[in-house]
Amino acid sequence: MLNKLKRGIPLSVLFIPTLFMFSGCTSEPASKNPTYVAAKVNKAQLTDEDVFDSNLNHEITEEDIQRAIAQAEQGFVLPARSPVILVQSGATTPDSEMQLEMSKYYRVSVNSGVPPTKARINRKSDEPVIQNNYMRTLRLVGAKGRQKAIIVYWGTLETGKVDDKTNMTVWSTYTGGKMPSETKSIRYLLRFALVDVKTGNWVTYSPTNTEREFVQSSFNNQSSAGTQATQIDELKRNAYEFASRDLSTRYEKYSR
């Protein structure tokens, strides 16, 4: 049986907006409607191609591979209190809880994590259509704002039920609405990509899954929904607290 995680107490922090960043941004308020989390999950997500600036339209040469190896040998370092751009995939603004936790270790600005709409080609014109890569555009913004790195994260909420035959927990992605009656536990999965503004070098990081028991409410539907939302919010806060602390420790010094 999973032990309940202790709720962390976020500290008050001062956000310092930078040029070309959103000034005074706050995340969307967490509604007590249990579809709140699923609504974010269902939005268009940033893809690896968006974030890693991969150009697969040209031939990859041996020189390309050796150059990438040489760059990777430099490692990835993100010193404490570095100015960073924080992005939540699929959200116009990262969750306020994540902003609070990251601000304990870095100077945080935010940017939209909604994939850009592809430009339509005007067939009547011979002028080429320029469609800049999402990350390359964001690196330019970061360069002008003197940001050190861009931190992108993806979050997925999953529900777990016990399989009667194997007595093991089976996980499935939460899609919104009331939790299935057989739900025994919930977990929040996080994945990060850290991109250096100057070089474009990147690393990926996936912290240990944050899990907790899920307590089904025996009250009316409204109270049950409130209890459900409270448990989800607490789970996410704990996930953000652990991931931010672990990420900062991992990349504060030389890291390969």
Rank of each mutant, 00 (worst) to 15 (best):
V77P: 00
T61A: 12
N57D: 12
E62M: 13
I65G: 14
L56K: 08
S54N: 11
Q71C: 00
R67K: 12
F52S: 04
I69R: 11
E63M: 11
S54H: 09
Q66C: 05
A80W: 10
Q74A: 01
E49S: 09
D64A: 10
Q74V: 00
E62I: 09
F76R: 01
Q66S: 12
H58Y: 07
V77R: 13
E62R: 14
I60N: 05
D50A: 09
Q74G: 02
D64I: 08
Q66Y: 15
G75V: 02
E59L: 13
R67S: 10
E73H: 04
A70S: 07
H58F: 04
V77G: 00
R67I: 04
A68F: 09
Q71P: 00
G75F: 01
V77Y: 04
G75S: 06
R67C: 03
Q74W: 01
F52L: 12
D50L: 06
D64G: 11
N57I: 10
D53L: 08
A68Y: 11
A70P: 00
R67F: 08
D53V: 07
A72T: 03
N55R: 09
Q66A: 10
T61Q: 14
R67L: 06
T61S: 15
Q74E: 04
F76Q: 02
E49W: 13
A80R: 12
L56M: 08
A80P: 07
R67G: 07
R67W: 08
I65T: 15
V77W: 02
I69Q: 12
F76H: 02
D50C: 11
A72H: 05
A72C: 03
Q66V: 07
Q71Y: 05
D50F: 12
R67H: 13
Q66I: 06
R67P: 07
S54M: 09
Q74S: 03
G75E: 01
T61H: 11
F52C: 09
S54C: 11
D64W: 00
